[in-house]
């Protein structure tokens, strides 16, 4: 049982490592961010498989927190990094 589930987690870890290639290549910033989003989902799955394979039930709570906060980085990216208008800082310096 342990071997099977940890082995499946290892397969998903390899899938994450292959997904790193998209972060390295990614032509646009959004491609890189989407790869990070994939890691969030894969991380939840790996944590669940590890929790079953190693018999640690509390790890499911870690997966829960992962799932809860996985959208945070993407939202910060879309709202704060990849916006159209110029840097807010120039505006604030004008006020000073």
């Amino acid at each position: 049982m342990t071997t099977l589930y940890v082995g499946l987690a290892l397969v998903l870890l390899f899938s994450v490592i292959v997904g790193l290639l998209r972060i390295m290549w990614g032509p646009t910033a959004a491609d890189r961010m989407m790869a990070a989003q994939l890691f969030g989902t894969c991380g939840v799955a790996i944590l669940l498989l590890l929790s079953k394979g190693l018999g640690q039930l509390i790890v499911e709570d870690v997966a829960l927190v992962f799932a809860l906060l996985s959208a945070l980085a993407t939202v910060a990216f879309v709202r704060r990094t990849w916006t159209k208008e110029g840097p807010r800082q120039t505006k604030r310096l004008d006020h000073d």
């Binding site: 959004a30 961010m33 989407m34 989003q37 969030g40 989902t41 939840v44 669940l48 499911e60 997966a63 829960l64 799932a67 809860l68 996985s70 959208a71 993407t74 939202v75 879309v78």
Partner: peptide, 16 residues
Amino acid sequence: IWFLVLLASATSCHLV
């Protein structure tokens, strides 16, 4: 957990 992941991925997919 599954519901939260669905919600998060739908939201972030739409935003991106």
